[in-house]
Each structure stands twice: as structure tokens, then as C-alpha cells.
Design a protein around this nucleic acid. Structure first.
Lengths: 125, 125
DNA sequence: TTTTTGTGACGTATTTTTACGGCATTAATT
DNA sequence: AATTAATGCCGTAAAAATACGTCACAAAAA
């Protein structure tokens, strides 16, 4: 099955559209998004359990290369969900409780907004 | 700054690694992930507010083309967070309360797992 | 019956994400 | 002083996500 597409058919397409949404939704989505990969969930879980750890430890916990783990760490750092302090050669990462609290707040605010009332019944069966 | 990379340097790289994580984490991440885009959050919000609606209505609510909105709807349908029933030419979409409840359960289970105790203090200042 | 309307499926392009090796640097070790 | 270790940064590549127009088809309307 072949399709014909004229010249210049595809032009300036696929530009990011997320800015067109309310900032509120953008922020909420960014929090959900950063939690949308098992590696980052594993990192948070590990940090929460061990309280404090060095970056090298986390790498051994994950089935990924060091650079990839570092990338995931960076994404978590960008949203300030974790903090990393250098101690000599090593880096101690730990959870940022305040930001984590804010995240939980933002997420539950959204989830409450889509709360379904008790008496809800969908018209479509 | 130039780097040299030998022949066959890049081979079978970047294969998906998410299957290497615990299924538990994979599921949780997939729920977070589907909520990681403002369009899908907007859809859920709109469906929750209007209880029932037709697909066409949602398209008018979002700053995206019909096909793009449909893609987002599909992702929500894949996780069964919404249901769509055909009624003639139109499609009625509505939230799946049971699945939404499950989602909330899964998410809060994870978030509780990374709960920080009251007396928590990070060693790194 | 012809036209309009609402969708789904397909193809495609851009952007972002994921993943990783190599190099450089800095601090510990030896 | 030389080596080892830990990490950040850069470049690259494959894959996935995002975005959209067109075509085809069904049902509804004219």
C-alpha cells in the first residue's frame, strides 16, 4: 500500500507542544514523567532504604552502565528529588525529603482532581 | 574536540533494558509514564469532570490535532484507564473507575515505600 | 443516493529518551 | 611520583515518543 506525499508536505512538524498546556499540568506531568522509568524508581527506592549512599553503590544495584545510571541520577537531580554532595572522589547521593514531599503533594492533588464519586456510573456499558 | 571511534565501535547498543528490572517496578513505572504528558492529564481531567463525552469534544479541548489526541487516547486505553464505546459514528470515552483506583493504589504503594521517617536527617549537608 | 461527519489505520518526520564507550580530571592509594 | 578509583562530560546511536496529514470506511444527514 503506497501513499503519495507532495513536496514540502512535511515541514516544521513535531515541534514541542507541551508549552501550550497550563503550567500547572506541565509541572504535574514532569513529576509523573521522571517517575516513569524503573531505573529511576529503583534509585529512589534504594536511596530511601539506605538513607545515604555513594553513587558507586547504586550502579552496582542496577543492570545498567555507569553512564546510563548517571543520566538517570541527573534527571532526578534536575527536579531536585535527590541531592548529591561530593566527598573527596566519591559522591554521596540522598533523597531530598522536602522536594519528595512536594512531589507527593502535586501528584495527589491531580489524582484527587480525577476522583470519581461514589455514585458514578458510566453511561456506556 | 574530536573523538576517534574504531570500526564496529557501536554495535547492538541501546537495546531496551526495562525488562531487566523487577516486574513490580516495570508496572509502576508504566503507570507513572502514562501520566507523564500534559495532554493525557488533560484528557483524564476532562473525562473526570464531564463524566461522559465524545472523542470529538476532547479534541476541541486540546491544542493538538485529532490524530495526536487519538494517540494519547490509545495510550490511556492500552492501560485501560479509559474505555471507549462506539455509538454510531461517534465514540464515547469515559474513565474506568476500577482501573483508576488500581493506578492510585500502585502509585501510593510506591510512594509509601520511599517514605522518609520523621527523624530523617541526611548525612550530607 | 449523495454528501457530510467522525474515526481508525497508516506513513512519516522531528524530538526526546535511553544507553553506552571514551576521555579528562581529581582524589586516594601504593 | 606513579597508579588506581570515582566521577563528570562529550559524542554517538538506537529506540521511543510526539505530532500530524492523508486515506478509507462507516454511519448519519441532506
Amino acid at each position: 500500500m503506497t501513499y503519495f506525499y507532495g513536496i514540502n508536505f512535511y515541514r516544521k512538524m513535531t515541534s514541542p507542544k507541551i508549552e501550550l498546556f497550563e503550567e500547572d499540568l506541565q509541572l504535574t506531568a514532569s513529576y509523573f514523567k521522571v517517575l516513569g522509568h524503573p531505573a529511576r524508581l529503583a534509585i529512589l527506592k534504594y536511596l530511601a532504604e539506605s538513607k545515604v549512599c555513594i553513587s558507586g553503590d547504586i550502579i552496582n544495584e542496577l543492570p545498567l552502565s555507569r553512564t546510563t545510571v548517571n543520566q538517570h541520577l541527573s534527571e532526578l537531580k534536575n527536579l531536585e528529588l535527590i541531592k548529591g554532595t561530593t566527598e573527596g572522589v566519591k559522591v554521596n547521593y540522598c533523597i531530598n525529603p522536602d522536594k519528595l514531599q512536594e512531589l507527593k503533594q502535586v501528584l495527589s492533588t491531580f489524582l484527587n482532581a480525577v476522583e470519581i464519586p461514589e455514585n458514578f456510573s458510566c453511561k456506556n456499558k
